[in-house]
Write a protein that binds this DNA or RNA. Structure first.
Length: 285
DNA sequence: CGCCAGGTGGTTT
DNA sequence: AAACCACATGGC
């Protein structure tokens, strides 16, 4: 059991951070968040300025929750009008977590045209069946399966993890990442737009999924994923001339470039705060 | 039953 | 390039 004191001038809200739908392998039970992150089974809770956890060292926790980012400075930089200001007030303390690229990529391939509980179910099924067992502070759990493991699974068995039509995309990505284990390092070394284009070469990864992986795994904080919620919010608040029902490619480009210019280099934080403040499921339990 | 959810790929205009 | 359309799944 480890405890770290949070700096009072650096806000952090563990509940918002883990409940907002950016990462899919955390559950809260009996006041503790339990999850597997980076192959470690972690159990963690927050009491005011105190973080208590088992299963990872302080360095891991600081890195995963990006506690060394100056959140107040980031929030000041995006807080440009009353609308985003309300989201910032409501969700202050929400931090973007630094996810492993492979898990993040597969999670967001599994997140197309579906909802968050379904994505969590898919990730849990893949992990329980094909992930490495990890004995941690809350019993045995399973790490997110490595590319080789998922690549070795038959299509039928992957289908059985409720992946639906995304089955082939996951299988193909696993094959590619097995053949090119440095795929993530190569993307991390690229400038933002090139990294984005490279991610979109994975079948099943379009603009939205690519932006999520860039933001949540690679630390490109200018990435601005546009899902149905964000499109709705941006249309109602900033780009009222937008019309139509679904988001066409030119519309997606317009929304993400406007948002990048308007909110600045941490536009991704603005996206997550607007998403978190959208309404449903803001806080767990 | 229909509609929606952290969309994308393939095909046809 | 733009417009359609299919797509598995589960909650409501």
């Amino acid at each position: 059991m480890t405890t770290i004191e949070l700096r009072p001038d650096q806000p952090f809200d563990l509940d918002l951070t883990l409940a907002c739908g950016q990462a899919f392998r955390w559950e809260k039970t009996d006041g503790w968040w339990q999850g597997v992150a980076g192959g470690r089974a972690v159990r963690i809770r927050q009491d005011a300025n105190r973080l208590t956890f088992e299963g990872g060292d302080a360095g891991f926790v600081r890195d995963y929750f990006q506690l060394d980012q100056d959140l107040n400075a980031i929030l000041s930089s995006i807080d440009r009008d009353p609308a985003i200001g309300a989201a910032v007030r409501e969700c202050r303390g929400l931090r973007l977590v630094r996810q492993p690229p492979w898990e993040c990529l597969i999670s967001y391939i599994c997140a197309t045209n579906t909802n968050i509980p379904a994505v969590k179910r898919r990730a849990a099924l893949m992990a329980e069946r094909y992930g490495r067992p990890v004995d941690g502070p809350f019993g045995r759990t399973y790490a997110f399966p490595e590319p080789e493991a998922l690549g070795a699974v038959s299509r039928a068995d992957l289908w059985d993890c409720k992946l639906g039509y995304r089955t082939d995309y996951v299988h193909e990505a696993a094959g590619y990442a097995t053949e090119y284990p440095d795929w993530a390092e190569r993307i991390a070394a690229l400038p933002f737009e090139e990294a984005r284009e490279t991610l979109m070469r994975f079948r099943g990864v379009g603009p939205k999924a690519a932006d999520c992986v860039l933001l949540f795994a690679f630390g490109f904080f200018e990435a601005f994923p546009v899902d149905v919620w964000i499109r709705r919010i941006v249309r109602e608040t900033y780009l009222s001339d937008l019309t139509g029902k679904n988001c066409t490619p030119p519309e997606y480009e317009r929304i993400r470039r406007f948002s990048r210019d308007y909110f600045g280099e941490y536009a991704g934080y603005a996206q997550e705060y607007l998403y978190c403040a959208r309404g449903p499921a803001r806080r767990p339990q």
